[in-house]
Design a protein around this nucleic acid. Structure first.
Length: 281
DNA sequence: TCCTCCCTGTTC
DNA sequence: GAACAGGGAGGA
């Protein structure tokens, strides 16, 4: 499930194959894979891809200046991979797979190529737009800061209320890019129980942010985690799943103290923590 | 602040 | 053939 490290890896691996490429045409195979606020995908035609970046869990494809200009002209495309989305380039002539939702036909210096957006569970979405249209997108407008670029005082100020700290970490308005895996892994590393209230975890914001950043950096260095679906733009799996301390390890011994890890449900998500190493309150 | 829904493949 | 995985929207 692509969270920040996985999307970062996709951006890095996608870049060499698409930057500088001209979009010759597009084909949308599933209408619901286009976000309701999106411009028609056909407006990509004739545009050149300038760069590939990331904001939180969103992959951002930036377009070089061009087109007619004006409010109907896109300058960026956001892709939310959600659980099972994949972006991969393929040789020209490669047919769409069962779960291909969108095909972008590219013209590169070395000839034609395809960019496929595949998504088994069809939760992922593409949003083509520009600065003005993104400003009308609530999710974009309210997206919290990048965890690798924020400071502990900012995190402390954002941890408010009596909800579980894990719920706060999953809230993209608090900080952008953390999902179920990295929430659990960060809380274990920080020694904070997931059910601790956000306001009381605010007192340990420095430790928590350090844990979040360490976990994200370690995962990025290993090209993310592959549970089952995730692959980068080259089709390669990540390796960080081999370093999980708690995620998916309910009932197994804690790597630090040997106590069986506890599985529970927090914020509607499967949650694993160590009852001994992670203190509540 | 919490729950349900969306969606489909995998696992029990 | 049901339970489960889960991010975010929307409703209770």
């Amino acid at each position: 499930m692509p969270e920040l490290p996985e999307v970062e890896t996709v951006a890095r691996t996608l870049r060499p194959g698409v930057v500088g490429a001209l979009v010759e045409r597009t084909r949308l195979l599933r209408a619901s894979s286009l976000h309701p606020l999106s411009m028609p995908l056909s407006r990509l035609k004739g545009r050149v891809i300038a760069d590939v970046g990331r904001r939180g869990k969103l992959l951002l494809i930036r377009l070089a200046p061009g087109g007619k200009g004006g409010p109907a002209t896109p300058d960026r495309m956001a892709v939310h991979l959600r659980m099972t989305g994949r972006l991969m380039t393929h040789p020209a002539g490669t047919g769409p797979g069962t779960h291909t939702r969108c095909v972008i036909f590219l013209r590169r210096a070395d000839g034609p190529a395809l960019l496929h957006f595949d998504d088994v569970r069809a939760f992922g979405q593409i949003l083509l737009g520009n600065g003005a249209s993104f400003a009308r997108w609530d999710f974009w407008r309210t997206l919290g800061p990048e965890p690798l670029e924020m400071g502990p005082a900012d995190l402390a100020a954002r941890l408010k209320g009596g909800r579980a700290v894990k719920a706060a970490l999953l809230d993209q308005k608090v900080l952008a890019g953390i999902g179920n895996i990295y929430a659990d892994e960060s809380l274990f590393r920080a020694g904070i129980h997931p059910c601790t209230t956000a306001e009381s975890a605010a007192g340990r914001a420095a430790v928590l942010l350090e844990a979040i950043q360490a976990v994200l950096r370690l995962s990025i260095a290993q090209c993310g985690s592959s549970i089952r679906d995730y692959r980068d733009a080259n089709g390669d799996a990540g390796a960080f799943q081999n370093s999980f301390a708690v995620y998916g390890r309910a009932g197994l011994p804690c790597i630090r103290c040997g106590t069986p890890l506890e599985g529970m449900r927090v914020a509607g998500r499967a949650t694993v923590s160590c009852p001994r190493c992670q203190r509540q309150g």
